[in-house]
């Protein structure tokens, strides 16, 4: 069973603010899901390689060369706050903009 404290800690790592009611719900539902995952312990996976992808492709690369960004204007219009063509965010250290 996942504790409320553990849920709070994961939520902090994941940068999601939760209400106390959400913390309680997630502790319950996630515990049920994680409990179900124990079914995998039935499987002997010794000497089995993990599969991270199924294509068999490896080292697919492209030339590491700069390209023009044709959609600079459109990207700027999508930004929540812009000043002089630069993105604005609150300060990282002092908490001020």
């Amino acid at each position: 069973m996942l504790t409320i404290e553990e849920v709070k800690n994961i939520a902090k790592l994941a940068r999601i603010e939760l209400t106390p009611a959400e913390e309680k719900r997630h502790a319950e539902t996630i515990s049920a899901v994680l409990d179900y995952m124990k079914i995998l312990n039935e499987v002997d996976t010794e000497n089995i390689e993990p599969t991270s992808q199924v294509t068999g492709l490896s080292d697919v690369t492209r030339e590491d060369a700069p390209r023009d960004c044709a959609t600079k204007k459109e990207l700027l219009t999508q930004m929540p706050k812009v000043s002089d063509n630069e993105l604005v965010v609150p300060g990282v250290f002092n908490g001020e903009e």
Binding site: Q78, M79, V89, P90
Partner: peptide, 16 residues
Amino acid sequence: GVRYGVRADAKNLYDL
């Protein structure tokens, strides 16, 4: 909420 999409009102970056 930084580069695109809906940004919530917040005083510091963590809260954002």
